[in-house]
Simulated scan of single mutants.
Amino acid sequence: MSRKPAVLGPDGTPTLIDVARVAGVSPITVSRALGRPEVVAAKTRQRVLDAVRITGYVPNLAAGALASSRSRLVAIMLPTIANSIFSDTVQALTERLAQAGYQTLLGLTGYDPAQEEALLSALLGRRPDGIVLTGTEHTPDSRQCLARVGIPVVEAWDLCEHPLDMLVGFSHEAVGRAVATYLLDKGYRRVSVVTLDDPRGIRRSESLAQALAEQPGVVVAIERLPVPATLATGREGLSRLLASGKAGDVVVCSSDTIAQGVLAEAASRQLVVPTELAVMGFGDLSSAAHMHPPLSTVRVDGLRIGRSIAEALLARFANPSMARTPLRLDTGFEVIERSTT
């Protein structure tokens, strides 16, 4: 596309009409290409995007949202970005929404329902088309507010009996029981846990401990540490367990990042893994299979979670009546055995 001189608005600011002139299309086509890209041919939309770049036009999204009742914005609430356990989910979710012409906004809750409530209060005034929440623990005010505004909501990375709206995730209690069964089958009877002080990690740990406690002769010790997950946190967790004499035969960690820290501390103390100390993580990060030794863990299909959330939201945007049959999707998990156990 050749560069054409733009005829700017009276204050020198490029307008939608300027974009239309440069692109050689009508203003309504520009509006559709920017607001509803799925209804515009790919070549035409590209001409419009080229014209936007040439003119420096910035769409007035607030005005567009008022006119169409659509903001083309989806808000995603994450506990943290300090480690990559949520990266696959966010990547798949944002890519699919972008293909459909939606942009995403990330908010960090710090595993704190009160912080989530504050973020929701700030965001709802901008009327996002959809909201993605990590987990199912929310304040009463958050629940009432979300029910009142009627915006499609997906709770992710969890399951519960009474979701706010749509639900895509897995059972953390089932993870705990599955890990307990795996460890018992491997012959471990002295089990220690290093978990962060986050609700889902605690639920996994408590489920694990409860399942192990049902077996005679099994000893369980839990070390709870503050968020976020770091290698230093894992090293501190193992140090505390060793100092108290509660390290046991295997250390189960609430994330692969914590497990990496435990392995680092074990190596510094010349503990042989897994003969002197076995280690198990959670999340199956891309680094888990390439550690030394490779880390046993629990695999969660973050890509599937992200894609499923995006498709659920897009389907609801296209057909709001689908709220009568809301989505309940269990994406499952898999225990992965590697050299650390």
Rank of each mutant, 00 (worst) to 15 (best):
A65V: 06
L34M: 01
N83T: 09
V52G: 01
S87C: 10
R36L: 12
L93P: 01
L120P: 12
G110Y: 03
K43R: 14
L119T: 05
V58C: 07
V58I: 12
A65E: 04
I76P: 01
P59V: 05
D88A: 15
P79K: 00
T80H: 09
Q99M: 14
A114Q: 14
L66Y: 02
A118M: 12
S87D: 11
T109F: 08
I54W: 13
R36N: 10
P79N: 03
L97C: 05
T44P: 09
A114R: 13
L97W: 04
L120F: 00
S69K: 12
S69I: 07
V48G: 06
T109P: 02
V52R: 00
L93C: 04
R72Q: 13
S87I: 03
A82S: 12
L108G: 09
R96S: 11
L105F: 11
N60D: 12
E38P: 06
L119A: 11
A42N: 08
P113Y: 08
N60S: 10
A98F: 05
L78V: 07
Q46M: 13
S71A: 12
Q91S: 15
V48A: 09
K43G: 15
L34R: 00
Q91H: 14
L61W: 15
R70H: 11
G56Q: 02
N60A: 11
T109S: 14
D50H: 09
V39Y: 00
A65N: 06
Q99W: 04
L120H: 04
Q115K: 14
L97P: 05
F86W: 05
K43A: 15
E38R: 07
L73W: 09
I81S: 03
Q99C: 13
A82T: 11
T89I: 05
D88M: 06
V58R: 06
R53H: 07
L119H: 08
V90D: 03
R53K: 08
L119N: 07
L120T: 01
I85Q: 05
A63W: 05
R53P: 08
E117K: 02
L61K: 06
R70Q: 10
R72V: 10
V90F: 09
S121L: 15
L108Q: 09
L105I: 12
G110W: 07
G107D: 14
I54F: 11
T55R: 00
S84I: 12
A82P: 07
L97M: 01
N83V: 03
R53Y: 02
V52N: 00
Q91A: 15
S68I: 02
E38L: 08
R36K: 13
Y57E: 03
V58P: 01
V58W: 03
A63E: 01
S69D: 13
G110M: 06
R53W: 01
T104M: 02
Q99H: 13
I76N: 00
I54E: 15
P59C: 01
A41K: 13
S69E: 15
S87H: 11
T94C: 03
E117S: 10
L105M: 13
T55V: 04
L34C: 02
G35H: 08
A67N: 07
Q99R: 13
N83F: 09
N83G: 10
S69N: 14
I85K: 00
T89D: 04
G110A: 09
L93H: 03
Q115Y: 07
A51D: 03
R47S: 14
L93K: 00
A41H: 10
L120Q: 06
M77N: 10
K43H: 12
T94Y: 02
